[in-house]
């Protein structure tokens, strides 16, 4: 790996990779975001677990979702998760290409990552707009909107980061020797995959586990 990936860190030993303090900030920031996601996930689990249950079957007698509320299709959410994985893979490939000095290929791959992230976000927005219920109908619908909305936000930030890196590549700010921004954006893209998988699984698969009406 390049020894000067960051503009602000000079290694004192030749065999080292120089990471700026920003990488520490990113990793700790992701821990914070993960705890925020954990709070949202705990809310979903707590509310589902708190629904009245049938003592014999263990299933929620009120239902999750409750009677009268149809569970939306899982198709769009599933494709959105695949798209976030695609974006992360594209950025990872871009990172390898830039380190090898192939900046044009890296630019193309970051562009793919950006568009794929945008695509994932658009799919999630469509998913929300197509829901047959409002966010105020039931705790289930509130959770559906909040978790899908939060995922959309995380995916949107990933798209913004990819766009920022794309501009930096096109203007020559990032090159084979200095590309920490791409490195950090790639880490965030994989973090988005984890968040999207977790939150959308809670939204769409919890009714299967807890017992849908």
């Amino acid at each position: 790996m390049s020894a000067t990936r960051s503009r602000t860190a000079e290694p004192l030993r030749g065999d080292q990779t120089a990471h700026s303090m920003g990488l520490w900030g990113l990793v700790l920031g992701l821990i914070v975001l993960l705890m925020f996601v954990a709070g949202l996930s705990a809310a979903a689990l707590y509310l589902e677990a708190g629904q009245p249950r049938d003592v014999v079957t263990g299933e929620t007698s009120a239902g999750w979702p409750p009677p009268g509320i149809d569970q939306p299709s899982r198709l769009l959410a599933g494709i959105a998760v695949l798209a976030t994985i695609g974006a992360a893979v594209a950025l990872t490939s871009a990172l390898r290409r830039i380190a090898a000095g192939a900046s044009q290929q890296a630019t193309l791959l970051v562009g793919v990552g950006f568009l794929t992230s945008i695509g994932a976000g658009v799919l999630l927005v469509i998913d929300l707009l197509q829901t047959p219920f409002g966010w105020d109908d039931h705790a289930y619908t509130s959770i559906y909107w909040a978790l899908t909305g939060a995922t959309t936000l995380f995916v949107g930030v990933a798209a913004l980061l990819a766009a920022s890196v794309l501009v930096q590549l096109l203007t020559g700010v990032i090159d084979a020797r200095r590309h920490l921004e791409l490195y950090n954006s790639t880490i965030y893209a994989w973090f988005t995959v984890v968040v999207a998988t977790l939150l959308l699984a809670l939204v769409h698969l919890l009714p299967l586990v807890g017992g849908s009406s």
Partner: peptide
Amino acid sequence: PPLVAGTVLLELDRKLGTVFYDALAGG
């Protein structure tokens, strides 16, 4: 961060009418 999550949900309840904390609507 979990408190931020809690305050966001409460503010959503107050501003947009979600029902995370409303026992009558499954909250």
